[in-house]
Every structure is written in structure tokens, then in C-alpha cells.
């Protein structure tokens, strides 16, 4: 569907930015409140629900037992996908996976994969014959803006509280999935000419390009992605990277607190 971006909204957002304000009263680098629930779905081997303002995202983890790829005989696999179904908002239509949902799934996937938080060799059952495939599925139920951060947080939180259902496959006792790191994503959207953290739906509607940064525990970059029309300068990137470092640490602490319960 074509969303005619209301020029009034753009003008309003630009005026607010000039006064260093945002449309919902937040400051430039302030996120909306996040609610994180883990282990919330009965049939998921791991699951999480993230509520970020008006955005609601579920992530579920399931396992399968499969034969390994010929060139990686002693490694399991990890796959992350995202569904953007019409329930998530009026701009989403039924049909085959849209470029938007593919991008979302792949950007979250890269952050988790490249951080090396899961040792794929630990997912091997019998070398050359049987390995685990771990599948993370992200389901966006309500798009109130910034579904990327909500999805990435749900995915890693679900993964870190996942139980390997070994007994279901007659392979032994169920045990927790080993996830050694906690990569976190932080996204910025250009609104009214400047970047803001955690844009809401209106800010995305009247905004421009977005940048997604996934950082590891040590502050290293694991995944970057620029989406939508627009350009940025190296100086702008340096500024948001500093904000991302602080924000990702906060998110990581939030996930650790949930794990401790």
C-alpha cells in the first residue's frame, strides 16, 4: 500500500527537532519503556515477548534433527526468520515474504550468528549424520515503530533461555542451550533531519533512513545495516555508535536480570 507521507507531519517533526524535542516528548537518545518476558510460550523450546511502546514482538525457538551440510559434517545450524503478517499493521499485506520481512530476519540473524554466541559444533549429535538445527522465528504482532530492536531483543532473550529438547529426539536428557554471548541491536532513524533512538510509528512515517547496529559484549560491531532512502556522514555514525554502546549495555543487563529469575 502506498502511504502518502503527510507533509504536515514531516514539518511538525522538523520543527520539534529544531527545539530538540520529539513528538512523544522523549529526548533524542531516550528509548520507550521495554517489557521483556521470557519462557512465555508452552510449546516453544525457547520464547520471549518484547513490548516496546506500541510494538509487540514474539520470538520462538524450535529444534529439528537433520543431516549436516556435507562441507560442515560436525556442525549444527542456526536460522532466524521473521514474519510480518497483516496483523502487525495496516501497511502489511498477505502473501509471500516481503523484502521488509526478509531484511528484518536477515539483519537479526547476522547479529546473532556473527557474534559467535552459539558454538555450532556443540549442536552436533553424530558427526556426518545427525545435527541439531536451531530455528528462531520472529512474529511481529503490532508494529508501533522500531520492530528491529524489539525483534533482536526477543530473539536473543528467547535463545538465552532455550532448553534443548534432547529427550524428544531420544538423544538424552533435556539441557539448557549454551549461549556464550549476548549480542544486542540498537537502531536509529533520521527524524526531522537528525538521528533519534527507538523511533515510534509516527517518527518512522515522517522520517528517513535508519541504521541498525549490533554490538557484542565487548563492544565490538557484529552487524550493521542501513535501510531506506537517505545518506549519513561518518561523524553522524560516530555519534550514534557511542549511544549504541551505552544502550546495548542496558539491554544486556535487562536480559541477564530475566535469566537470573
Amino acid at each position: 500500500m502506498v502511504e502518502l507521507v503527510p507533509s504536515l507531519l514531516r514539518q511538525e517533526l522538523a520543527n520539534l527537532a529544531e527545539d530538540d524535542r520529539r513528538i512523544d516528548g522523549r529526548s533524542q537518545w531516550q528509548s520507550r519503556d521495554i517489557k521483556l518476558e521470557v519462557d512465555c510460550l508452552y510449546n516453544g523450546d525457547g520464547s520471549a515477548k518484547v513490548t516496546l511502546g506500541d510494538t509487540i514482538v514474539y520470538a520462538g525457538v524450535k529444534f529439528e534433527v537433520r543431516t549436516p551440510w556435507p562441507d560442515r559434517p560436525n556442525e549444527g545450524s542456526l536460522m532466524c526468520g521473521a514474519e510480518l503478517r497483516p496483523i502487525a499493521g495496516r501497511k502489511y499485506e498477505p502473501g509471500p515474504p516481503s523484502p521488509e520481512s526478509i531484511e528484518l530476519g536477515r539483519v537479526v540473524d547476522r547479529g546473532i550468528r556473527e557474534s559467535g554466541c552459539i558454538d555450532l559444533q556443540s549442536l552436533c549429535i553424530i558427526p556426518g549424520e545427525k545435527v541439531y538445527g536451531v530455528m528462531i522465528d520472529i512474529h511481529v504482532l503490532s508494529d508501533g515503530g522500531n520492530i528491529f530492536d524489539a525483534s533482536a531483543l526477543a530473539a536473543i532473550a528467547a535463545l538465552r533461555t532455550t532448553t534443548v529438547p534432547a529427550s524428544t529426539f531420544d538423544i538424552g536428557d533435556d539441557h539448557p542451550l549454551q549461549v556464550s554471548k549476548a549480542p544486542m541491536m540498537c537502531s536509529f532513524t533520521r527524524v526531522g533531519g537528525r538521528y533519534v533512538l527507538d523511533a515510534n510509528e509516527q517518527e518512522e512515517l515522517g522520517g528517513n533512513e535508519r541504521i541498525h547496529i549490533t554490538l557484542g559484549d565487548d563492544g565490538h560491531l557484529h552487524s550493521l545495516q542501513k535501510g531506506l532512502k537517505g545518506v549519513f556522514t561518518p561523524a553522524e555514525f560516530a555519534e550514534i555508535l557511542d549511544v549504541a554502546q551505552l544502550r546495548c549495555t542496558e539491554l544486556r543487563d535487562m536480559v541477564s536480570a530475566k535469566e537470573a529469575n
Binding site: 547476522r110 550468528r113 556473527e114 557474534s115 559467535g116 541504521i211 557484542g216 565487548d218 563492544g219 565490538h220 560491531l221 557484529h222 552487524s223 550493521l224 545495516q225 542501513k226 537517505g230 545518506v231 549519513f232 556522514t233 561518518p234 555514525f237 555508535l241
Partner: peptide
């Protein structure tokens, strides 16, 4: 990269980079 203005229009990355390496 936009060579005239020095702006960036496309950005992706995967792997492991420290901010200095970036």
C-alpha cells in the same frame, strides 16, 4: 560512498570489528 559529498548511502557489515577497526 557518495564520492563528492563524502556521505554514505549503503552500509552493511557482518563479522567482528572493534570500533577502532571500523
Amino acid at each position: 560512498i557518495l564520492p563528492t559529498t563524502g556521505e554514505i548511502a549503503f552500509l552493511q557489515m557482518d563479522g567482528d570489528l572493534s570500533p577502532e577497526e571500523y
